[in-house]
Computed example of a mutant assay.
Amino acid sequence: MKITEEIIAHPLFRDSLERNEEAEKERVFCHHDFQHCLDVARVAYCMVLEKNLPIEKDIMYATALLHDLGKWKQYESGLDHAQQGANLAGIILGDIGVEEKISLEIQDAIRTHRYAENKTSLLGAILYASDKACRPCLFCKSLKECKLFPEGREPLLQY
């Protein structure tokens, strides 16, 4: 998985994950770290395989690994992390020589990954579903305060 390996080695990817970690060190809710991104990638690729979808493993992993890179910018300035993540992904994908068409597809999936109604692509729909499926709500001590699961609503346990 050439693209995935180059993303993981890219200094902007590593820097953004470090900034996310620093910004979330006191956070009681879900974290947006490498483990979360890797979990999303694995679940997303399982979905691709189960549904026999035409998405390459490397593209699915790349999209999932990049999807929350902009979280630190959201904490810092209030900017939408999905849009900021898409921008950061565009820089990284350009630096490693990913074809523009593929880069734009990945950026679109990242830009629209937060809400079900925003999906403009299959890649985006799988990213959305896998991101939600990877929330560790079952064991969360802060679930009652979580904005994602208002009182009376069960957390997602499967996709």
Rank of each mutant, 00 (worst) to 15 (best):
A82R: 08
K71Y: 07
V40K: 06
Q74K: 11
N52R: 11
W72N: 05
L79R: 13
S16P: 04
A9S: 12
V40E: 03
E26W: 10
I55Q: 08
N20G: 12
Y61H: 13
I3F: 10
P11T: 01
L12C: 02
D39A: 05
L12K: 11
R14I: 12
W72P: 00
V48A: 05
P54A: 15
A44I: 04
K73V: 15
R14E: 10
A41C: 00
G90H: 14
P11Y: 03
A89F: 09
V28Y: 09
E18S: 07
L38C: 01
K73L: 14
V48R: 02
T4A: 08
Y45V: 02
C30F: 06
L88A: 10
E56R: 13
E76C: 12
F29S: 14
I7V: 11
L79S: 04
S16M: 06
G70H: 04
V40I: 05
S16D: 08
S77D: 12
L53F: 05
A44S: 15
L66R: 08
P54W: 01
I59Q: 10
T4E: 01
K71L: 05
K73I: 14
I7L: 06
Y45M: 06
H67S: 08
L88Q: 07
E26P: 00
H10K: 08
H36I: 09
E24R: 13
R27H: 12
K73D: 04
H36P: 06
Q84C: 11
E21Y: 08
L49W: 07
K25Q: 07
D58S: 05
I7H: 07
A23R: 11
E6M: 14
E21S: 12
Q83G: 05
T63W: 03
A62Y: 01
L65V: 01
C46F: 05
M47A: 14
D39G: 07
H81T: 06
I8D: 00
R27W: 12
